[in-house]
Measured scan of single mutants.
Amino acid sequence: MRVFPVYAPKLIVKHARIFLTGVIWVKDLGRLEFEKGRFLLPRKSLPKVKQAILELNELIEAQN
């Protein structure tokens, strides 16, 4: 598990694309899981977490 002390979308996306499957922890967002290079949306999450995951997945799609 990698810990990101700040929310840096480009760096987080780079990590997810390299490792494809895993878990990261982002300060103020908490634990985020990714599989096959995409972030998974938890069943229950705060609106800011949901927005961050959608933003990260959009960045991943834009890079493909």
Rank of each mutant, 00 (worst) to 15 (best):
A16Q: 02
I12T: 01
K14C: 12
H15N: 02
G22I: 03
R38A: 06
N64S: 09
A52S: 06
K27Q: 13
S45R: 13
R31A: 03
K10W: 12
L20S: 09
M1V: 15
P47V: 13
R38C: 07
M1N: 15
I18D: 12
N57Y: 01
R2M: 15
F4L: 02
L29I: 10
I18Q: 14
F39E: 03
I60R: 04
V26E: 00
Y7L: 03
R43K: 10
D28Y: 15
K50R: 12
V3F: 15
L41T: 09
L56W: 01
V6F: 14
E58I: 10
L59D: 03
R2W: 15
V13H: 02
V49W: 03
L40I: 09
V6K: 07
L11D: 11
K14I: 11
L11G: 06
N57K: 01
R17N: 08
D28H: 15
Y7W: 13
V49G: 02
K36D: 09
K36V: 06
E61T: 09
V13A: 13
K50S: 07
P47C: 09
K50I: 06
F4P: 01
L11C: 11
A62R: 12
L54N: 07
V26G: 00
S45C: 10
A16Y: 03
E33C: 14
F4K: 00
R2S: 06
G37Q: 06
G22M: 04
K10C: 13
S45I: 11
E58H: 11
L32A: 01
A62Q: 13
K14E: 14
E35R: 14
R31H: 04
P5T: 09
L41C: 08
K14N: 13
L29Y: 06
H15T: 04
K48F: 07
K14W: 10
K44I: 06
M1K: 14
G30F: 04
K48T: 07
P47T: 12
K27H: 15
P42E: 05
N57P: 00
R38S: 08
L56I: 04
F4C: 04
R31W: 04
V23F: 05
I18F: 14
V13C: 06
V13E: 04
Q51A: 13
R2E: 15
K44R: 13
P9M: 04
L20F: 07
E55H: 12
V23Y: 13
L32D: 01
E55K: 09
Q51V: 07
L41V: 08
Q63I: 10
I12F: 02
R38K: 09
L59W: 07
I24F: 05
R17V: 09
L46S: 13
Q51E: 08
V6Q: 06
V6I: 12
R43D: 05
N57S: 02
P42M: 08
F4W: 02
K50E: 05
P47K: 15
L46Q: 11
A16K: 00
R31D: 04
R43P: 06
I53M: 04
K27W: 14
S45A: 12
I12W: 00
K44Q: 08
L46N: 11
A62G: 09
V26W: 03
K36H: 14
F4Y: 04
F19V: 14
R38T: 08
N64H: 12
D28T: 14
K27N: 15
L40A: 05
V26N: 00
K10P: 11
A16S: 08
P5H: 15
A8L: 12
I18W: 13
F39I: 03
G30C: 03
G22W: 02
I60F: 08
L41G: 04
I12E: 01
V3A: 04
F39W: 01
L59P: 00
W25N: 04
I18P: 02
Q51G: 10
I12L: 05
L11N: 05
A62P: 05
L59G: 04
V23S: 07
E33Q: 15
I12H: 01
L40Q: 07
L29S: 00
V13D: 00
I24N: 00
A16E: 00
K27A: 14
Q63E: 14
A16I: 11
A52R: 09
F39K: 02
K44H: 08
K10V: 12
P42W: 06
V3R: 08
R2K: 15
K44N: 07
K10L: 13
K10H: 12
L46V: 12
K44F: 08
K14H: 11
I18N: 10
G37K: 04
A8M: 14
G37L: 06
P5E: 15
T21F: 10
L46H: 10
Q51W: 11
G37Y: 05
G30M: 03
E33M: 14
